[in-house]
Each structure stands twice: as structure tokens, then as C-alpha cells.
Design a protein around this nucleic acid. Sequence first.
RNA 1: GGACGCGUAGCUCAGUUGGUUAGAGUACUUCGUUGACAUCGAAGGGGUCGGUGGUUCGAGUCCACCCGCGUCCACCA
Length: 958
Amino acid sequence: MNKELPKAYDPTQYEDGIYKKWEKSGFFNPDNLDLPENAPSYTIVLPPPNITDKLHLGHSSMLAIEDLLIRYHRMKGYRALWLPGTDHAAIATQNVVEKKLLKEEGKTRHDLGREKFLERVWEFLKETQSIILRQTRKMGASLDWSREAFTLDKQREKAVKKMFIDMYEAGVIYRGERIVNWCPRCRSTLADDEVEYKDQKAKLYTFKYSYDFPFAISTTRPETKLGDTAVAVNPKDKRYKKYIGKIYEVDFAGVKLKMKIIADRHVEMDFGTGALGVTPAHSMADWQMAEANDLEIIKVIGEDGKINNNFLEYSGKTVEQARDMIVKKLRKNNLLEKEEELKNNLSVCYRCNAPVEPLPSKQWFVNVNKKLKRFNGKSLKEKAIEAAKNKEIKFIPEKFEKRYLDWMENLHDWCISRQIWFGHRIPVWYCHGTCNIKHETNIIVSIDNPKQCPKCGSKNLIQDEDTLYTWFSSGMWTFSTLGWPDNFKNGKKSGDLARFYPTQVLETGYEILTLWVSRMIMMSLFALREIPFENVYLHGMVLDKYGKKMSKSKGNGIDPLDVIEKFGTDAVRLSLVIGNTPGNDLRLSEEKIAGFRNFTNKLWNIGRYILQSCHSDPAKAGEESQVKKKNIAHPRSFVAIAPQNDKATLADEWILNKLNKLIKDTSDDLDNYRFSQAGEGLREFTWSDFADWHLEASKFEKSEAKQQVLLMVLENLLKLWHPFMPFVTEKIWGEMGKENLLMVEPWPISAGSIVPKGCGAGLQSVDGSLQKGSTASRNAMRGDYGAGRVRGDYGAGRDPSPAAQDDNFEIIKNIIIAIRNARAENKIEPGRKIKAVIYGGKNAKLIKSQEHLIKNLRTGIKELDIQQKGKKIKDAIPVTVADIEIYLIGAVDEEKEKIRIKKERENLEKLIINAEKKLADKEFIKKAPARIVKQEKDKLKLWQEELAKLKGQLSGLK
RNA sequence: GGACGCGUAGCUCAGUUGGUUAGAGUACUUCGUUGACAUCGAAGGGGUCGGUGGUUCGAGUCCACCCGCGUCCACCA
């Protein structure tokens, strides 16, 4: 404890060791925390990072915020569980491995075959997974590694299959044909949110199908017109009204088509000719029209992106080739009326950028509109909307509730099958035996691989080739990680599910609000009939200092490990949490991180100084602890150092009251997700109040009580900072000779705080002897206290924050600042000692008692004369602080002084004029609340008094 | 096209239901190293709160429109 600490805090030297110590303690696992039976749980399930790549700063921000919440609640006595894991990210991962395979070996997945290819994927993900886990530990994340999960491990696989079967049996999952976004290159369907749009120049062709068709239509894709079965016009369009309902047989570029003229209000009259060829098989909008009008569906384009058979010379051609051929033919036949340039959006695959082809295909869907018995006739969609609307689930910040609801209300059935190999295989089998079960309504859905067909006994069963959409398994993440379905029998939760579900907070980026959050809500409601989380906290993106999204391809990303190496984890964490509000993007630069590195060093030095100065006299150590037990037990009883206790100084009382308020404010802020505000409050206290004032004052106020005050403030400060910067706080805590880990210390509490039921920990005494006790005794201690508001009898017997005491120290502070200020403005050399006279009025006694501070805190005053009042002093620099007059003697520079006074006077006069104007306004007097009017009057009076004094001083100069 | 959000000091951002002289960090200027910390200390300069109009005794805050930017959704056949 007395050993010399290095001047600068070097994070790289301690962080790994500290993390190991935490991990070894077992306290990351809430089962190892000593808590009363009824302690409330606090659960966060970590949004599992994709195993496609190592972590970026966005992940770091997520980890910093979640670790903060978890550490805070752990200290507050909750059964805090933070459950880690990773996501297999089916398509993305397969894509990465395929690219790698092609680049390194020139092979495709088909060259290897399903089994061999999957082996490669697993090899790849083992590597990235271990990098991710190492990075996560580097961030100081207090995750319960014993519960680690993966979206594609055995337990999750079981959960996914069970979910699929339950949903299938409830009629929520169905197989159907549907237009899907198809990527011909990836040979896979794409979800709506996997399609990107690219501006492009296209040609809009206007033509007639044939000579005998009455009018022309416009399209950018003539080749798809081979599959047209209708022409749609706007029902209000007078030009075409007479054709509606008629049927035409046409010969389009050699292909016979039967066309019905239909009306649809979505058709824009101004676009092209106002008539639209309907191609049900190759356009989302047209598919819907076809359903509404019962149109025939003709597939023109195949999964390979080429024209199907039965289309004459076009068969087997690519869409581009077919388009050229058809345009040429139309032109030749004089049917092409117009060709014009058009800007439109091309749908492209988000992975490979290939143009997306809308195609009808057999897919598995989740029906979000199906009325369900378990929801009393409501649908998944309705229940998920309800959960947000009745505030069962709260969004932080609130604005995202609206975005969630907008999305949900427009939700379509959800396509959950993907034509890729890596992922959860769909648990469906088709019989190729005698009964030939292929039909959707007559298939085998099973959690275990079926051996034979239950109908015909055939062993010739073939599993559905497709895998499930990644988000299907991620959507179950909150409960598949807690043992569902084993822990959920007959509608009753058991084990971890009973203890930790629903979770308290889901913390994630706002960009996956719709992609992920909405699905988790629906799936939890379906599987458990309850919400997955009570709060959704959404953070913004981490941008570079130019406001651009960090990405590998742009090369502007900051690698978390690099900056951690350079500035330390604590600094990185602070820079991600402070100076940012929920839901807003964060611009990050190394300069900002460096600023917080400086702060961690500051805290380190505060600790270093206190430890050095408090143990300079080891003989006193025993005596101190006696004092401590009697007088200073806990921050909630700060007033134990009452004014009548002559051992405590004015500065001590001031800082203890400030600390008490800080505890309350920090807790309030954290309870309301105001992390940045909490951090700023802490920084203000630490650096400005504690280091710059109290610590400086302490150098001139040695006493036994003083050492205890310093240690107590430090102790509590470390606790308050711990969730933000766990490493440096834990390190200093260790240097203080504490045996227990700071990580599991009870959170400090101030009078008036609300303690949740079961959270006795926060009420534990700070007294060292109690902390050192065995786990059993700690447990007993906690058990003694119930829930409720901390009453006076537990701690402070009265208001622990006597404003008068604070104001008194503020007066001294202001006198010191005013003197420093006057010296600087008058350019008095720092080394020059001066004499001062203070007329303190009613505060004279107070000022006299704090003479040592006024003389010593960088005011350069050698001689100080304090009177109640007296004559104006000539040849001195006059300074006023409220009604206190100060004269600095022996260094006057009249010219400079006059300028200073003039400036101040002008400022005051301006304020006075404004206030007078306001008070002269009858409307203001009449309508503004009395409180505001009085405030205004008080201000005016104060300013007028100050102005009068200034005038007096000015006359004193000459 | 629709929805949501943003625009406050050179830069990064706070500013809770309208009510002290609009704040912080950082950068900048001046000064200062006798043992907690130069990754430091003291003092200071810097903003007509994107624009216009309105509501109000009172607007950075509420409303309308405009300008600039961002995100999400839809999509032009």
C-alpha cells in the first residue's frame, strides 16, 4: 500500500491481469454472487456479432454500454447476467468463405460439395470466433462465459427446429409460391432488406404488342413481356375506360399471348402511355395485381437468369440478349413507337451487386397475419404492435417506437428459407417412396431425422435442401440462450428461463431495429407468450471524424485493438459513452480518445496522491480506522461529520455534500440511460471539485479526519466510475489494500434513494471490516435490509446537503477566483507576493476561518487582513465578490484596472437595462409566474449593488 | 415519393416539461514546473443557436414554410 506508484498510468501493464482476476473470481456468473433469494435479476443478452469478421468500434460501443449497465446493476445488488455469443450469419459467412475459396483455390462450393464445403466454413469460423472473443475480453466485458452460445450450436439447433415445428403446426409457417427477390448469381432469394437499389440509366420502350392491339404500353424490360397476361390502366383514365374488361389475343414478337385489360389505381396516368403490361411472374407489383384479378402466371425467366424453354428462339438466352432480339423485332415490324432515356433504380444483390430478378419460387413463409388461438384470435403482427403500444416494451430514445410501429404495420409475410448450405437446415422431409409425399400439406416435419415414412414406410426420404434465414435463429436469441425449449414445459418456465426471462434491456444499433428487434418480439410472443425484453436501447453508428461510416473497404475504420493498445481500454470506453446521446451517431477521433486517456491518468494520480499522503504516517493507521467507525461510516451518513465536529473542515463538508449529491445524480442518470450526462457529472466532480479544489485545499488542512475524508471520497468515486472505466478503478482499489474486488462492491447510496426489493447490497455499510467478511456474512448483511426508500434512520439523520455549508465554501472559492483573476488581468507576475485586505461584512468570520485557503491556493497573498468593514483603500486593486470587498495592495496598475472595471461596468449596465425593461413591462408582471418575476427583481437588485460598488472603486483609484 | 431525425463556439457534442448573462470537452491565446499529475495547473478569447415568418409577457426549446444534411421505407412499370 505504501509502495511507490508510477507517475503515469500504463493500461497495457495491468488490464489483462485484471481481467483474468475478474474471470477467475467467478462473479461474471450471477450464480456465484452472494445474493438473497429474492434479489431481482437483471439480464442482457449480448447481440451476437457475426462471425464473418473481427469486431469494429461499433461493437466496442455496444460492449461499453452493456458492460456499464451490467456492472452498475451488479453493484446495485441485482442478479446480473450478461450472456455472450456469436451469430453464424448464414449468407454473409457462406459468401465470405466462397470468396476466399475462389481466390485461394479457384474453386466454387459446388466443386467441393455440401459436406466438404461446410467443413471449410467451420474451419473459418473457428478462427474469427476466437478473434472476436479475445477482442470482447479486451474491452473489459464482464460476460458470463460459462453460458456462451452460438446461433448454430447443438442447443440452438434444437430450439430452432422446435420453433419451426411449433409454428408449422400452428399454421404460421407455410410453403408457398411467391415472387421473391432472386439473385441469379448467388442462386438464392434475398429478403427485402437484402436488396439494394442503384441509380442507373435505362431505356423506356413504348410499343404495341401487335398490330391489332389497340394501344401502346411502356416498359424498360421488353423481354419480360413474353409473360404478360394483362394490361393495367388507371380506372380514372378516360382514354382507356372503354377497354377495361376486354380480352385480346396478340402475337407478340412471335409468341401468342392472351391479354386482359384490367384497372388498377396504382397505375400512373402520366407515366409512359398510362398503360402497363402486367407480368405476374416477374414483378412484385404485377404479382399482386394478378392475385387480385385472377390472372394466369407465365414464367419467362429461370433461376439461372435465362429465358425458359417454350419461348422459341429466345429460350436459353440471357435477359439482355432476349431484350435486344425483341426490340429489333418490334422495330422491324414498326411497332416500336418510342425509345427514351430514363433514370431508374436497379435492384441489386447487397452482396454481389448482380441485378436482382423477381421470380416466383417455392419458399417457406411465416404468416404474420394468421389469427392464432394462443393470442385469442390475434395475429403475430397485432400482438407485436400491441406490446409496443401498451408500453410493455419501451424504446430508448422514444422516437424509435414510431419507426418500429410503422414497420410492423406494413409488415408482409416473412420469407424464411434460403437456398444456401450454411445454416439451420429446414426440418422437413419429403417421401420419395410409394406414397410420394411431396405435397405441402402432407410432409414430414420432425425434430429428429425420420427413419422412414409414417405413411408408406419407405426409407427413401429426402430433406428439404434449403436452410433457414439467419434472422430466424437470431430472432430466438433472447430465449434460445436461456434453455428454451427444455426449460419451457406446459407453458411453465424453469431453470435459467424462469430466473432471467424476460430480459431487461436489449441494446443494439438502430439500423437493425426492424431487421432483428421486431422479429425477436414476434418470436418470443409466439414461443413464450411474453415479451423478450422490457427496454430497447438503441445506439447510433460510430463514424469517423469526417462523419463517414467506418468500413473496411474505405479504410477509415479504427481497429479497437489498436486504440486500446495506444490509449487503454478505459479511455476507449469513455470516448464511446461520453459526449453522445442514445440513437445519435457518434463521430470518433483519436484526439477524443486521447482526452479521455488524460482523464484516466488524472484519476490515477488522484489515487496516487491520496494513497501517498494518507500513509505517510503509518503509526496513525490504526487510529484512523477507529475514527472511521465512529464518524464516517457511509456516504449516506456524511453528516456524521457534523459542523460541530471540529475535525472536519469547511472544504470537507463541502466535498462530502457534493459527493452525496453526485451519488444521487449518477444513479438517477444511469437509471434513465443518460450515460453521457452521468459521465460528465462524474468528470466535473472528479477533476474540478475534488482534484482542483478539495485536494488542493487538503494540502493546507492536515488532520486525521482529513485523511478519512480523502479516502472515503476516493473509495466512492472509484465505485461510481467503475461501470465506466473498470480497469483503472479496479487497479486503484487494489492499491488501496482492499481485499474484495471493486466489481462486486455495493453501489454507494445516498439518502432518499429508492432501493428495489431484494437489492440489499446497496445498503451495506462501507465499513471495511464488513467487506472483508466471508461470503456468508456478506449475504447475511444484505438479507437484513428490505426494499424501499432509504430512510433517515439508516443514514443521515437529516438533510445531508445543507445548502448553507455549500454556499460558504463557494464564497471562499469565489474570493480566490476573483483574486487570481485580478492578478492575471493586471499582469502581476506570478512570483510577486502581495498584501490583501478583505472587508467581509457578515461573512468576515467565515472568511477569517478560511484564511489559510485564501492565502495558499495560488493567490500569491502573503499578508491578509480581514475586517468586517472599513474605508476604501487607495492605490489598491479593488475586487468585489457579491457584497465582499477585496483590495490587493502593492501591485496596482491603474490603467489596466480602469479598463477592467469599465468592462465589468458595461456588462452590468447592459444587464440592468434589460432587467429594468422586463420589469417595466406590464404584460410581463401580469402574466409571468410570480417566481419568475421575483427572480428578475432579485437579479436586478444584485446587479445594481455591484454596479454601485464598482463606481465607488473607480473613484477610489483617482 | 413517404416517414423519422439532424443543423448550437474552429471541431465533437449537451441543453429534460418554453423562464438566471446558452454550457462541456477539445483546439486556440497568455502565464506558470519548489514532489499527485506537463497525459499538469491558473487565467482568457470565441456563438445574432441554418434562414424567414408566427404563437407567447418571454423561443435554442412550440408551429408553418424554406435551405442544407443524414437514416429508414416504398418504388417509377
